[in-house]
């Protein structure tokens, strides 16, 4: 089975792109599965089910979605292998800009949209920086110039990635993305593979439910800001 991880900010077009991508791949019905990692709620499973695509959804709740992803990805792969998929795609919504659920050796796709502002690529961080392919959506509603500036800003933070423009509504561009993804490697398990980037350190008192503010309540791994005297 092949595995592709897709990440990107909420509403950037991940589900739309994955649906169009699967349409282009011309595979037998049921041979491509999707695992959706989300925080609280998600309606994506409905879109996938409607398209006849087997889907599993997991909610991270109060745990950082990245930690949740890592602790469940091997089980997801086993589900995919047992279900006899040729291809498994994971969709996860990066919420803090520190997220990057990418694994070494596994094709990593980051989806961002043109409407998010030209400087957004510089703010996204590892999720963009460590991707192999950056898919840019919603190019149908901004000017050519802005698309070019946007792509330039992507290359500034990730000079190595391929930038592919896909229209999540018409599917324009999904074909070339599908071609590119054929390079994904066959795997049976992810055990002993490594993440491309450390997951956010989430081990302070606030991670575990503390709500009071002030030094006495701050425990564990803390990063303090430095305020200079004027």
């Amino acid at each position: 089975m092949k595995l592709i991880t897709v990440a990107g900010p909420p509403s950037s077009g991940k589900t739309s792109v994955i649906l169009k991508l699967i349409e282009c791949m011309n595979c037998a019905k049921g041979s491509i599965g999707v695992v959706k990692f989300d925080c609280l709620t998600s309606f994506d499973n409905l879109s996938y089910e409607e398209a006849g695509i087997p889907v599993q959804t997991g909610f991270s709740g109060k745990i950082c979605p990245d930690h949740y992803f890592v602790s469940n990805i091997e089980d997801a792969v086993q589900w995919g292998v047992e279900s006899g998929f040729e291809l498994l795609i994971t969709e996860s919504a990066g919420l803090c800009n520190r997220c990057s659920p990418y694994i070494r050796g596994i094709l990593a796709v980051c989806v961002i949209d043109n409407l998010s502002g030209v400087n957004t690529p510089r703010k996204i961080g590892p999720m963009l920086k460590f991707a192999d392919i950056v898919v840019v959506t919603k190019g149908d509603i901004v000017s050519q110039a802005e698309r070019e500036v946007f792509a330039f800003n992507i290359r500034q933070v990730n000079s190595a990635a391929k930038v592919i423009f896909v229209n999540g509504i018409t599917g324009q561009g999904a074909f070339i993305l599908a071609k590119y993804l054929q390079q994904a490697v066959e795997i049976q398990s992810l055990t002993d593979t490594k993440l491309r980037f450390t997951t956010p350190a989430a081990v302070c008192s606030y991670c575990t439910g503390e709500t009071k503010i002030g030094a006495p309540y701050q425990m564990g791994m803390m990063k303090k800001m430095e305020f200079k005297n004027l």
Partner: peptide, 12 residues
């Protein structure tokens, strides 16, 4: 390919 259509707007 560069594209130009009726739906395009500036957002910057």
């Amino acid at each position: 390919v560069a594209q130009l259509s009726q739906n395009m707007n500036f957002v910057m």
